[in-house]
Design a protein around this nucleic acid. Structure first.
Length: 550
RNA sequence: GGCCAGUUGGUGAAGUGGCUUAACACACUGCCCUUUCACGGCAGCAUUCACGAGUUCGAAUCUCGUACUGGUCACCA
């Protein structure tokens, strides 16, 4: 009995060879220096911020060098699989313009290196596993859960390193005859890799972010194929897929760093070149006195859905993540305002290796605010309308009522060198403009009058203003000159310096008068430019609102 | 506990032996501008790079030790 017999008993249906697959998926014909990257999420029904972060890097590496960025669906854990997960991933990548070059989606395969769904690659994995068994580098293991738990507690008791390795690898040297007998008797088993490594020895490993590392060799006989379903574990799928799909750069979270010895031994056993690894910092959150990974259960901001729903412009989300990816990005972007994020030259060496970047909502909000302030009125109209159509019916209705009116409101103090920055997200817009709409204006009950609260005085100010000083034709200078005249006429100081020198001589100053007009028209003490608001409101509406006060 | 990584202001960080009396951005504070707010401008915010020792004429930058933080040790990825 030989290993070959064992392999045939386990995989009687596998007829192809490793060489067949190597031929089917030949070396890619790429330009000099072009890279192949992948985004390989497991379909859990969420698009995690951390995964998205990696997808940006994947895209960045490939961009401008005619490389290939592909999406691979890692669905080997059927227990966790969620229906429609790929839809969500694709739509998120699409929303942010980082679509892959190759993918498999809705029965459609784009690219010659598929299938890109792991559960459809079972035969391929099994071919490789079969080969491993034949060459004596993999074997069936019949250890039960209980057996493994016992092993673990025994190891803990004598303070040995836990795990299935060396002399603890109970089924490693099981005679082939016995193994076959057990299999034929229908016993449950997994396939384990037979490691030849020595934990006491170190090897050199080049991490693209951290530089040269010395890691201990792997000596664990880890599982490469699960008992149910015959699907591989991550480690083995990583080997097979990234070899056959000809991946050159693996971008993944730094939680994988400690599995590197396993992967290196796997690649070396086959004699395949090891891809370059970019282990990215995790995005973490502060809690009490510790930090932890963003969790989709506890932190809504951990999923990409959050940013879409709350109306963050996509450029803002990208820009924020870019500042974490390479902190010189912000500077680069201010120096190259017309370039897109994909033009940026990503350098893994410049990425922080600090083991965790604290998620900073303040920073994101600031970026978002700036990004909205730079939009033209037309852009903001389109973007906010698209957002409202999905997430805010009230805003959508308002826009539908009168697009021109809405556009005019958005344009207040916009499209200038120093635009306003008071809208953080699209979901913020309504809070900032409601008073321009009669029904919303009616609903608000309180007027935020400040210094002048006397009804008669307010009435006098508004009436005098409308009767003698207001004209729609005035430009801004004339308009303000008239406000000043109004001040003078009613005993308020039009000149702030004079007022400050002798406040007793006046009833108040131009600020007080402006505030009265502002609050009377908007109910709010703080609004954008009053002149523009009056222009948009128009004379009739102004009179109407002033009269409501009596 | 073993192994691995990391440790520069409240936050993201620049920095790779002298150009650093530690960049930039966010946050915060104060002042100025101003019809309110937002914007903008100016200034302040780490005498010091976790701590200790060593190498060196010279260290945030190199070496060692300690402490702390994080990751990992699954038939999850």
């Amino acid at each position: 009995m030989t290993n070959k017999d064992l392999a045939d008993v386990i995989f009687p249906h596998i007829t192809k060879t490793v060489a067949d697959y190597e031929a089917m998926y030949p070396q890619r014909n790429l330009k000099e220096g072009a890279c192949v990257t992948r985004f390989a999420p497991s379909p859990t029904g969420f698009m995690h911020l951390g995964g998205f972060f990696q997808a940006i890097i994947d895209k960045l590496i490939v961009q401008n060098r005619d490389g290939i960025f592909y999406l691979r669906n890692e669905d080997t854990d059927q227990k966790r699989e969620v229906e429609g997960a790929t839809d969500l991933i694709m739509s998120t990548l699409n929303h942010y313009d980082i679509l892959p070059n190759e993918y498999q989606f809705k029965e459609k395969i784009v690219g010659n290196y598929g299938p890109y769904i792991q559960s459809e690659r079972k035969e391929i994995y099994q071919t490789f596993i079969k080969h491993f068994i034949e060459i004596g580098r993999a074997y069936p293991c019949f250890a039960t859960k209980e057996e493994l738990e016992e092993l673990r507690s025994a190891q803990e008791k004598i303070k040995a390193r836990t795990g299935y390795y060396g002399r603890y690898a109970r089924y490693r040297n099981l005679p082939i005859e016995e193994a076959i007998k057990k299999i034929e008797a229908g016993e449950s088993y997994v396939i384990r890799f037979k490691s030849m490594g020595d934990f006491e020895k170190k090897f050199k490993f080049m991490d693209e972010v951290r530089g040269l590392l010395y890691l201990p060799e792997n000596d664990e006989d880890f599982v490469i194929m699960k008992s149910e379903g015959g699907l591989p574990t991550y480690h083995f799928a990583h080997l097979v897929d990234d070899v056959l799909m000809r991946t050159t750069h693996v971008v993944r979270g730094e939680e994988w760093l400690s599995s590197v010895p396993k992967h290196v031994e796997l690649f070396e056993t086959f004699g395949y070149p090891i891809p370059k690894y970019i282990h990215t910092p995790l995005i973490v959150k502060k809690e009490e006195n510790s930090v932890r990974k963003l969790s989709k259960r506890k932190d809504p901001e951990a999923t990409m859905q959050y940013y879409e729903e709350n109306g963050y412009p996509k450029e803002a989300v990208i820009e924020y993540l870019m500042t974490i990816i390479n902190s010189n990005y912000e500077q680069w972007h201010t120096e190259n305002p017309d370039k897109k994020f994909l033009d940026f030259q990503f350098d893994p060496k410049k990425m922080s290796a600090t083991g965790g970047a604290l998620f900073d909502m303040d920073k994101l909000n600031n970026i978002s605010k700036n990004s909205i302030s730079k939009m033209t009125k037309e852009e903001l109209l389109e973007e906010s309308y698209a957002w409202a159509s999905k997430y805010n019916e009230q805003l959508k209705e308002i826009i539908d009522q009168d697009r021109n009116y809405y556009r005019a409101i958005l344009n207040i103090e916009r499209e200038s060198s120093k635009p306003r920055k008071d809208i953080t997200t699209y979901s913020d817009i309504l809070n900032n403009i409601w008073y321009m709409y009669d029904d919303l204006f009616e609903k608000e009950e309180t007027y935020e009058f400040m210094k002048i609260t006397d009804k008669e005085e307010i009435k006098k100010i508004t009436k005098t203003y409308m009767d003698k000083y207001f004209s729609v034709e005035d430009d801004k200078e004339t308009w303000f000159a008239k406000i000043k005249s109004l001040c003078d006429a009613l005993g308020y100081a039009s000149n702030m310096k004079e007022y400050k020198q002798n406040p007793e001589a006046y009833k108040g100053n131009v600020t007080d008068i402006s505030t009265v007009l502002r609050v009377a028209l908007t109910k709010k003490a703080q609004t954008p430019d009053l002149y523009e608001i009056m222009q948009i409101l128009g004379k009739d509406k102004m009179i109407e609102r002033f009269e409501k006060l009596s």
